[in-house]
C-alpha cells in the first residue's frame, strides 16, 4: 500500500507513457475483473474460431490425424476445381446483394412512414412488421401458400383466374426457388435494425424540423435528406451491419423451404457447402477455407458499407 502511494506522488508529467499506462491498469484492476468472464467466453467461442479457421484452412485435417500443412491447396481447389463452390458463392452473393439492401431500405422506409402515427397505432403496426422475424419457424407457412398442389394459395388463385391450368411446383422449379426464398427472407428480415430505426427517428430533436422549416426545407424529402438521415447516422450504421450479417447467413431457411440440395442447386449457398464439408465429409481444413472466405466476405461488405454510410449528409 505504501509503495502504491509513493508511485502516485510522481505526477503525470514525470512518468513515461508506459509507466502511466501501468499506473492506470493497476488503478482500474476491478474493471479488468469485470470484463474478464465475458471476454473469456467471447474470445473462446468467437475470436479463437476465426483465427483457428484461418490456420486450419492451410491444412488437411480430419480431426483424427494431426493437421497436415498444405498451404494454399484448399483455396486453389475451391476456386479452380469445385464447381459447386462457385455455384454456392454466386448464389450467396446474389442473395446477399438483394436481401441485404432491400431489407435495409424496407426497414428504414417502414420505420419512417410510421414515425408520425399516434403512439398506440405505431405500436400495433410495429408488431405487425416485426412479428415474422421472431416467429420461430412460422416461415414454413410459405410452403403452404406456395404448395405444389391446388390447395396452395398461389396455385389456386392462378388457376381460378385461368392463367395456368396445372399447378406449378413452386419450390421444385428452378425458375421460382431463388425469388421465392428471397421473398421469404425479406418477409422475416424486419428485425432489430427496424426497431433501431424506429427508436432513432423518435429520438430526433423535433426543434430541428422547425428550424429546418424556417430555413426553407420545402417537403418531407428534403427534410429526410437534410435533417433526418444525418441525425440518425449511428442507427443507420448499426442497422446496416445487422442487415449485412443477416443476409449472409441464410442457409437453414432455404433448406426448410426448398430442401438441400435444392433443385439444380439454384439456391445452394455457401452455408450449405460449408455444412457439407464440416458435417458430412469431415474435411475440416477444406471447410475452414470456406468459413474463412465467408468471414472475409462479411467483414469486407460491412467495412465497405459503413464507409459509405459515414458519408451520408456530408
Amino acid at each position: 500500500m505504501s509503495k502504491n502511494t509513493e508511485k502516485q506522488v510522481k505526477t503525470r508529467h514525470e512518468m513515461t507513457k508506459a509507466e502511466w499506462t501501468w499506473f492506470l491498469v493497476r488503478k482500474n484492476k476491478t474493471a479488468y475483473f469485470m470484463v474478464l468472464p465475458f471476454m473469456f467466453i467471447f474470445v473462446l467461442f468467437t475470436v479463437v474460431p476465426v483465427v483457428a479457421s484461418l490456420f486450419l484452412s492451410f491444412t488437411q485435417f480430419n480431426m483424427l490425424e494431426a493437421p497436415k500443412f498444405i498451404f494454399m491447396d484448399n483455396y486453389i481447389t475451391l476456386f479452380l476445381d469445385d464447381e459447386l463452390f462457385i455455384t454456392a458463392l454466386k448464389n450467396t452473393l446474389i442473395f446477399a446483394a438483394v436481401t441485404g439492401p432491400v431489407s435495409y431500405l424496407l426497414s428504414f422506409v417502414v420505420a419512417w412512414f410510421i414515425n408520425e402515427l399516434p403512439p398506440k397505432i405505431r405500436a400495433i403496426v410495429t408488431l405487425i412488421f416485426y412479428a415474422p422475424s421472431i416467429a420461430g419457424n412460422a416461415y414454413l407457412i410459405w410452403t403452404t401458400l406456395f404448395s405444389s398442389d391446388a390447395y396452395g394459395w398461389a396455385n389456386a388463385i392462378l388457376m381460378e383466374l385461368g392463367i395456368i391450368d396445372t399447378p406449378i411446383l413452386w419450390f421444385q422449379n428452378a425458375t421460382y426457388v431463388m425469388p421465392l426464398c428471397i421473398i421469404v427472407a425479406l418477409w422475416m428480415s424486419l428485425g432489430t435494425a427496424f426497431l433501431s430505426f424506429i427508436a432513432g427517428l423518435q429520438g430526433i430533436n423535433k426543434s430541428l424540423y422547425e428550424a429546418g422549416a424556417i430555413d426553407g426545407v420545402k417537403n418531407r424529402w428534403q427534410e429526410l435528406w437534410y435533417i433526418t438521415l444525418p441525425s440518425m447516422k449511428p442507427q443507420l450504421m448499426f442497422g446496416a451491419i445487422l442487415a449485412i450479417t443477416g443476409a449472409f447467413g441464410f442457409g437453414p431457411v432455404v433448406t426448410a423451404l426448398a430442401g438441400n440440395p435444392s433443385v439444380d442447386y439454384v439456391a445452394y449457398t455457401l452455408n450449405h457447402h460449408l455444412s457439407e464439408y464440416q458435417g458430412t465429409r469431415w474435411e475440416v481444413g477444406y471447410a475452414s477455407a470456406i468459413s474463412f472466405i465467408m468471414f472475409l466476405m462479411m467483414i469486407g461488405a460491412n467495412m465497405l458499407i459503413t464507409k459509405l454510410i459515414s458519408k451520408v449528409g456530408q
Binding site: T46, L56, I241, A287
Partner: peptide, 12 residues
C-alpha cells in the same frame, strides 16, 4: 463481432 454470422464460427 456483430459483423460476422455464427455460421463462420460453428466449425471450430
Amino acid at each position: 463481432s456483430l459483423m460476422i454470422n455464427a455460421v463462420v464460427t460453428g466449425l471450430v
